[in-house]
């Protein structure tokens, strides 16, 4: 009886016997979901993880992990990490500034919901269409490129800009990164109470001191957490990069894509190790994000 009431609160009167019988089979209701996650999330990923520690004959080995540190793969990881880092840093800074401006900037009331709604859309406007949009804007014959060249006489491609390069890709990623940052940091910026600022200035603190001693320390866990989320977000993305640069930029997801298509590493198990490395990086940043979010929530009560 006690087991039942702890589960269902107050069981309907007179239903005790039925409730007992139901409880015995209650776990059956959990099976579909658990089976689905086992077969379509955990199982396949576990298969890759185990394969990463095996050689083609099925013997256990660390050789694949060691081979990840070969120059070609190491370069891919390095480039991936650099692009994710660059787009996460720019996204974090720009997104924070925008969020602060719409929350505390004293702007007209309609600005905030407008920016928030647009960010909701833009954070989901990724993948191939986003690449197309940036090609139409800043590609060699894009509208902005042509406008700058023909009207203002500035040829950005002659000045070294190239959309199909590291910084071009970073700028394109910034589109959804900035939007995502605004969405996830706004609650934390909201938690920044105006009383703190007033208290600080009454005690004679300058604006700079307020930021360095009050606002930033309070916001830091949130900002770092959001940064990690943006980082993982960029690290796993492939469609935008694929549509924009083809296989010009040798980032990890594109290398993995080529490996799945045509075994370009000539070693299936090395492919598993490549995937394993990706999981480790995204999992680490997500776990750190959760830790930092737990810390940040202390200030949002």
């Amino acid at each position: 009886m006690s087991a039942i009431s702890s589960n269902t609160g107050d069981p309907p009167r007179g239903a005790t016997r039925r409730a007992y019988r139901r409880l015995d089979f209650a776990w059956v209701g959990l099976v579909p979901f658990l089976a689905f996650t086992a077969f379509f999330l955990i199982g396949p990923v576990l298969y890759l993880v185990v394969g990463a520690f095996q050689n083609p004959n099925g013997d256990y080995t660390f050789a694949n992990i060691v081979n990840l540190f070969s120059p070609q793969i190491l370069r891919a990881y390095q480039l991936s990490l650099e692009i994710s880092f660059a787009s996460a840093v720019t996204g974090t800074v720009a997104g924070f500034l925008l969020a602060y401006a719409i929350v505390h900037g004293g702007l007209p009331k309609w600005i905030r919901p407008a920016v928030a709604t647009f960010s909701g859309v833009a954070s989901n406007f990724a993948g191939i269409p986003l690449a197309f949009a940036f090609i139409a804007t800043l590609g060699r014959i894009g509208m902005v490129t042509s406008f700058l060249r023909e009207t203002l006489g500035i040829n950005i491609y002659a000045m070294g800009f190239n959309l199909f390069s590291f910084w071009g890709l970073t700028l394109t990623y910034l589109y959804f990164q900035l939007a995502l940052m605004v969405l996830i940091i706004t609650p934390a910026v909201d938690g920044l109470k105006s009383e703190w600022r007033e208290a600080a200035s009454m005690l004679g603190a300058s604006s700079m001191q307020y930021w360095r001693k009050v606002a930033l320390p309070v916001l830091m866990p949130s900002i770092m957490g959001c940064f990690l989320l943006l980082f993982a977000n960029a690290f796993g993305t492939i469609a935008t990069a694929y549509a924009l640069t083809g296989s010009q930029l040798n980032i990890v997801p594109i290398l993995l894509f080529a490996q799945i298509r045509g075994n370009v590493l000539y070693n299936p198990n090395l492919g598993y190790a490549l995937a394993f490395g990706m999981i480790v990086i995204t999992a680490l940043s997500n776990v750190l994000y959760l830790v930092l979010r737990a810390r940040a929530e202390r200030w949002q009560r």
Partner: peptide, 21 residues
């Protein structure tokens, strides 16, 4: 469990499917 797809990059997931199935 429901949040796992946000942690596992889609390309890794589909790679797992191709091998697993």
């Amino acid at each position: 469990l429901s949040l796992l797809p946000l942690v596992i990059p889609p390309i890794v997931l589909v790679f797992g499917y191709i091998r697993f199935y």
